[in-house]
Computed example of a mutant assay.
Amino acid sequence: MRRISAFILIIIIAFAVYVDLSKGTLPKHIAPVVAEVTNLEKGEQEVGLTYFEKEVNRGDTVLSIIEQQNMNIENLPINVIAEDFSTLNNGIKPEEIQYGNTYKFPSYNNEN
């Protein structure tokens, strides 16, 4: 009985390692695009924001998408994220996003 249990345990571990190495357990990294964006609220002043584009799925929020792509944003105020999102998307508010559309999301990986 012990041999069968050990064999089954080895098979489960081998399968878990295979899935982890072939498909991975971490989300895919999307390379950020660097662009100069005009801040509409401050007139002609140019603001350099790094961003990535992503199509919104059902149930996604601006904050959830940004948290998936950026590391260490715990200390970043939500109002800064909302302002940067609106700046990148011509004044669209974060609560007005619609699934199926592609938006620009700010990337904070280089700043933290």
Rank of each mutant, 00 (worst) to 15 (best):
M1C: 07
R2D: 11
R2E: 12
R3E: 08
R3L: 12
R3D: 12
I4L: 13
A6N: 08
F7I: 14
F7N: 14
I8N: 14
I8F: 15
I8S: 14
I8H: 06
L9S: 10
L9N: 00
L9W: 00
L9F: 03
I10W: 15
I11W: 07
I11D: 09
I12E: 12
A14Q: 07
A16G: 14
A16M: 10
V17H: 12
Y18E: 08
V19L: 15
V19P: 01
L21T: 03
L21M: 06
L21N: 12
S22K: 15
S22Q: 14
S22V: 14
K23N: 04
G24I: 03
G24S: 01
T25Q: 14
T25V: 13
L26A: 14
K28C: 04
H29E: 13
H29S: 09
H29P: 02
I30Y: 05
I30T: 12
A31C: 00
A31G: 08
P32L: 07
A35G: 15
E36W: 03
V37C: 03
V37A: 03
T38I: 11
T38N: 13
L40W: 02
K42A: 02
K42F: 06
G43S: 11
G43M: 07
E46I: 10
V47Y: 04
G48K: 15
G48C: 01
L49R: 10
T50G: 04
F52Q: 03
E53D: 06
E53S: 13
E53G: 01
K54D: 00
K54R: 05
E55K: 15
E55T: 15
V56E: 03
R58A: 09
G59F: 06
D60T: 07
T61R: 15
I65W: 03
I65H: 02
I65A: 01
I66S: 05
E67L: 10
Q68L: 14
Q69T: 04
Q69N: 13
Q69W: 02
N70E: 10
M71W: 08
N72Q: 10
E74W: 07
N75L: 13
N75G: 15
N75C: 09
P77C: 08
P77G: 08
N79C: 00
N79Q: 05
V80T: 12
V80N: 13
V80A: 11
I81Q: 02
I81K: 01
I81L: 09
I81F: 02
I81P: 00
E83K: 13
E83M: 09
E83P: 02
D84Q: 11
D84T: 02
D84K: 01
D84H: 11
F85E: 10
S86V: 10
T87R: 00
L88Q: 03
L88I: 03
N89T: 06
N89D: 00
N89Y: 04
N90I: 00
N90H: 12
G91S: 02
G91I: 01
G91P: 04
I92Q: 00
P94E: 01
P94Y: 01
E95T: 05
E96M: 08
I97L: 04
Q98W: 03
Q98S: 10
Q98Y: 02
Q98V: 11
Y99Q: 12
G100S: 07
G100T: 04
G100E: 07
T102I: 11
Y103C: 05
Y103T: 02
K104F: 09
F105E: 06
S107A: 07
Y108S: 10
N109F: 00
N110H: 13
N110T: 15
E111W: 09
E111F: 14
N112S: 10
